[in-house]
């Protein structure tokens, strides 16, 4: 697959922290509109990979391209976010003292400069967009509540809603169901599959039950590089994957 047709293209990426190779010659390609699940034991480099894609960490070597020809290593977090990559953190991070609505309003795509923000007037188009997202993330009823009052799972959803408000092309979702009940997990899987219809998505998750529910191609990382790739059944049957997980 040529670079031009991809939404995300990582080739030969390495990064090390004080001699520790967090990412080691990692190559990963995501097609436009694809949803991919990434699994791997602790310290496999999943979060560091996200850091590299979102511009938080600069790779020592290797190429990182977005949307075919945008070199992500040349941009910083805010640039990359505006270009269309949204990221959900491992730990839900929302603006706790703002209402659910304000959280979404701040995330809405639009100018990101200071002066427009000072003299900003909310428009009906914005209100509609927020309404739609609230419905998608099932938080319509909590619109005016402070985000701090939401449950853990609802915060996760709000964060996903903020990603949607950004209107990104690619979503990076880090452990979306950590700490969720089974019902919430199923709901989240449905939500993500919904989103994946119109966006490219990368999901990092430990919960195999959830990954199975997503029913997408799986990449298993280990020690900073790709160990195995394919359907969940294929990856789960891979001797090396079993060894890594069970430590044989």
């Amino acid at each position: 697959m040529g670079r031009k047709d991809t939404i995300l293209y990582l080739d030969g990426v390495s990064v090390s922290f004080d001699g520790f190779k967090a990412i080691n010659n990692l190559s990963l390609v995501l097609a436009e509109g694809e949803m991919r699940a990434i699994i791997g034991p602790n310290g496999a480099g999943k979060t560091t990979m996200m850091d590299i894609i979102t511009g938080k960490t600069r790779p020592d070597t290797g190429e990182v391209f977005f949307d075919g020809d945008i070199d992500l290593t040349r941009h910083d977090e805010a640039d990359i976010a505006v270009m269309g990559i949204g990221r959900k953190f491992q730990k839900p991070t929302v603006f706790e003292s703002h209402s659910v609505e304000d959280n979404l309003l701040l995330a809405l795509a639009g100018p990101r400069r200071i002066l427009p923000a000072i003299f900003h007037r909310s428009s009906s188009a914005e209100a509609e967009r927020v309404e739609a997202i609230l419905q998608t993330i099932r938080l319509t009823g909590r619109r005016y509540d402070p985000a701090a009052d939401l449950s853990h799972g609802q915060k996760q959803w709000l964060e996903i809603g903020m990603l949607l408000a950004q209107d990104p092309k690619l979503l990076l979702v880090d452990e979306p169901v950590a700490g969720m009940t089974d019902a919430e997990t199923e709901e989240t899987a449905r939500l993500l599959k919904d989103i994946a219809r119109t966006h490219s998505v990368i999901v990092v998750e430990h919960d195999m039950h959830f990954v199975r529910e997503l029913d997408v191609k799986v990449t298993c990382l280990h020690e900073g590089s790709v160990l195995s790739e394919g359907s969940l059944d294929h990856v789960a049957a891979d001797e090396r994957v079993i060894e890594v997980y069970l430590g044989r």
Partner: peptide, 8 residues
């Protein structure tokens, strides 16, 4: 960091 990752 959340503000940064939504593009501000």
């Amino acid at each position: 960091s959340r503000t940064r990752f939504i593009g501000w």
